[in-house]
């Protein structure tokens, strides 16, 4: 009979319409901004700079102004100017820091390549998307102060990734400390071998690290 296809279709529409009053599968609208969807951990929007501590964000930036992200950024939205002086980083090494670090979020396409190429885990992807501003020419330009957020924030928004970064950085710090200790030990050994009956000096690289040093 002609019209059976239409009737079947109307049955589907009716099922969806009536179902939308009680079945969450059929009514899928989120009433933003009163309700918010839970974003997955991997969600990324614009980047932010990681500071080790929240008390001194500018002083504890992990970024050493190597400018790799600036070169690799496809739309070239990052501007970095190196500082003239140096500051100690988390490992105690003197590093330059960025005097200017600006990202133009009207150009940034959130592709995450800057995060992938950063050798220092200094730039990570943020999840804030409510960045609308009324100033068209400068309001979307985020400078160092606006970009820097503490490491605790990074742990909160990307817990899995932050745990992995933390483990890697801790391993790096431990390796640096072991190397420093191994380099310092030969200086102590010649002083210890005085001309008296003494057992020969133990091999210098053998000193085991005391537990709990890596922190």
């Amino acid at each position: 009979m002609i019209g059976t296809g239409l009737l079947k279709g109307l049955a589907v529409t009716a099922r969806n319409f009536l179902g939308s009053f009680h079945d969450p599968r059929r009514f899928v609208t989120t009433q933003y901004p009163e309700e918010r969807t839970v974003l997955p951990e991997a969600y990324r929007n614009f980047p932010f700079l990681v500071s080790e501590s929240a008390d001194d964000p500018m002083g504890t930036l992990r970024c050493v102004a190597c400018q790799i992200c600036e070169k690799e950024c496809p739309p070239q939205c990052i501007l970095i100017e190196k500082s003239a002086d140096k500051k100690p980083d988390a490992n105690g090494k003197m590093q330059i820091y960025p005097a200017v670090f600006a990202i133009d979020t009207s150009v940034c396409m959130s592709c995450q390549i800057c995060v992938e190429v950063c050798p220092f885990d200094a730039i990570k992807m943020d999840q804030v998307f409510e960045l609308a501003t009324t100033n068209r020419f400068g309001g979307l330009l985020l400078d160092r102060e606006a970009l820097a957020k503490p490491d605790s924030y990074f742990h909160r928004i990307h817990p899995t990734e932050a745990a992995e970064v933390e483990a890697r950085l801790a391993a790096g710090r431990k390796a640096a400390q072991d190397k420093a200790r191994a380099a310092a030990a030969p200086k102590a050994a010649p002083a210890a071998s005085a001309p008296s009956v003494q057992p020969p000096a133990a091999p210098v690289a053998e000193a085991p690290p005391p537990p709990g040093t890596a922190a």
Partner: peptide
């Protein structure tokens, strides 16, 4: 989105594989 971070602009494949493991 939960795999690559973005719904449409995924930027997920790399030369030699994929960018990140599924969570």
């Amino acid at each position: 989105e939960s795999l690559s971070g973005s719904r449409m602009m995924c930027n997920y494949q790399r030369f030699g594989g994929c960018r990140v493991d599924p969570p």
